[in-house]
Computed example of a mutant assay.
Amino acid sequence: MTWAAFRSHFPVTGRWAFFDHAAVAPIPDTAVAALAEYASRLAGNGLADILFWVDRVAHVRRLAAQLINAPAADDVMFVPNTTTGIGLIAEGYPWTPGDNVILAAEEYPSNQYPWLNLASRGVEVRTVPSRGNRVEIDDVRAAMTDRTRVLATSFVQYGSGFRTDLAALGELCRERGVFFFVDAIQGLGVFPLDVQALPIDALAADGHKWLLAPEGAGIAYVRREWVDRLHPIGVGAHSVVHSFNYSTIDFRLKPHAGRWEGGALNVPGITALGASLELLLGAGIDAVSRRIIELTDYLCARAPEFGLEVFSSRREPDKSGIVSLTKPGTPPKEIMKRCRAAGVIVNVRADRLRVSPHAYNTEDEIDRFLRVVADGG
């Protein structure tokens, strides 16, 4: 697939130069068609189409398993948001008073509050401040104690764009016997992630950012050896082995991640997520990754010409789809508003301009953004 062909699936390009995929991304026309099909079939057939949608959800689960190379499709569950996936680990882990969890100090709030909520259970949150634009693994190691039970990290930090070395942190966790959780939302869909090659015990990611899906349809993964060790929360009719035998109460939980899917799923969101996954997997995540790095490298190379300073680490292992920028003397929100008026969508995080292009964007669109910055003086 050429990038021109890939781009043709995004109606947003008709109006906007859209560089805010780290917030809420526009969806491709294939996902729009999937949503329309769901609405049409539900209106015309109701429950009579149930087996069609059961099959569609199973298909999307297989796509999600392919995306992260899960050992089996059943190792993947659907979640309404990343917060839900974080919560099932935070609330389900077998804590003992005095245990602690390690976080980067600049984590997105959704990867802080669920852990801070454990204070009443005697769990301490230990935070590791960034050194400028990076989180150093030596600082993570130094923060660990013999009571560290969980390390929770973002694949990519939402404010700085720093990409975590998951292999190195995972190996540290294995050495220390620490559960390794990854908030994958800012990297999944941009970079390959292989849960069989990496020592990740669980991850979660909503689909509305780099996976190009609607809000409310995400995925989570739990390594099979941990399924019975985590206390299940959100248990419901669909959590048990014979989930469709409603007249018999047989409390045997599914032996995989499906035990956390207790109630009705967001089927329209999941089917749209599936359409977006087909597009991304069809292009190839390796190719998507290379294209996004090309675009962000181009942006970072040209930014100084327009008075912009690049805050994000652009070391080869650290690069991501997020570029954090500043323009001395100009408030970032002023630039953001000026861009919006000119048909360019960027955002502000951590009091810096955040630019996050996807593979369908172009160098010409980046130049358009830079011209808006320059026109403001």
Rank of each mutant, 00 (worst) to 15 (best):
F191Y: 09
F191N: 12
F191V: 12
P192M: 10
P192V: 08
D194S: 08
A197F: 08
L198R: 07
L198I: 11
I200E: 01
A202R: 04
A202H: 08
L203I: 10
A204Y: 06
A204T: 04
D206Q: 15
W210D: 14
L211Q: 03
L212P: 09
L212T: 12
L212Q: 12
G216L: 05
A217R: 00
I219E: 07
I219W: 04
A220N: 01
Y221M: 00
V222I: 11
V222K: 08
R223E: 06
R224D: 09
R224F: 04
R224M: 07
E225V: 10
E225L: 09
W226E: 06
W226K: 08
R229H: 12
R229M: 10
L230D: 00
L230P: 06
H231C: 12
H231L: 15
P232K: 05
P232N: 03
I233W: 08
V235R: 01
A237P: 13
H238L: 14
V241F: 11
H242C: 15
F244H: 15
F244I: 14
Y246E: 13
S247A: 14
F251V: 13
R252V: 15
L253W: 08
P255M: 08
H256R: 10
A257N: 09
G258L: 07
G263H: 13
A264H: 13
L265F: 06
N266L: 05
N266T: 03
N266W: 02
P268L: 07
T271L: 08
A272S: 04
L273I: 03
G274S: 04
A275G: 01
S276V: 02
L277H: 07
L279K: 04
L279M: 06
L279C: 09
L280R: 06
L280M: 05
L280E: 06
L281R: 04
A283W: 05
G284T: 03
G284Y: 00
I285N: 02
